[in-house]
């Protein structure tokens, strides 16, 4: 079953590479939720994340002829999502600064909680809020390293910063999250 899915994905990818829009739409349908989730985690804003997901797929379509398949399609899409989210996030930040608009907070109330106990679910919910309230550069590092399991080197490369800077940001972000979560519990 899994093999068949892989074969179907490879076939869709081949057709999409040759300019088949229908095949690419099928790939979008398949990957839309994971791309949107990553954008939402990075941006902490539902509408901006929707824009980022849309822009990610358009960029992917344009770059598809250059995709050599060295990494999985989802990994490649994740990298484009990070770049796109970063660009849109900075643009939105400039817009907010000029209009003094209030930042919107992440609304992922529709996200199912993986926890079975009410206490754990509560911690998960507060953690999502705490992550969304981190400053953008720290949130990006926590999302990629601690939530998605990227290496320090991959995070540094994606965000165009040094490995040391990535580690420092992660250190500060984890301290903030820990203090926020356990100070509230005490």
């Amino acid at each position: 079953m899994a093999d068949r899915n892989v074969e179907e994905s490879a076939e869709l990818l081949d057709r999409a590479r040759q300019g088949d829009e229908g095949a690419f739409s099928e790939l979008v349908r398949h990957h839309q939720h994971e791309v949107f989730t990553l954008a939402l985690r990075l941006l902490g804003n539902y509408e901006l994340a929707a824009d980022a997901a849309q822009e990610t797929f358009i960029r992917a379509w344009r770059a598809l002829p250059r995709f050599r398949g060295d990494s999985a399609l989802s990994t490649w899409l994740h990298r484009i999502t990070v770049n796109t989210s970063w660009t849109l996030g900075r643009r939105a930040q400039r817009h907010r600064a000029s209009t003094l608009d209030e930042a919107l907070f992440m609304d992922d109330s529709s996200a199912p909680s993986p926890e079975s106990s009410a206490e754990a679910a509560d911690l998960g919910g507060r953690l999502r809020t705490a992550v969304s309230e981190l400053p953008d550069p720290q949130r990006a590092v926590v999302v990629l390293k601690d939530i998605y399991g990227w290496s320090h080197a991959e995070v540094a490369k994606a965000l165009d910063i040094s490995v040391t800077a990535a580690k420092v940001r992660l250190h500060r972000a984890r301290q903030k999250l820990k203090e926020k979560l356990w100070r509230e519990m005490e």
Binding site: H33, A53, V131
Partner: peptide, 8 residues
Amino acid sequence: LGAETVEA
């Protein structure tokens, strides 16, 4: 959180 998916 990495295992969660938010519906697009």
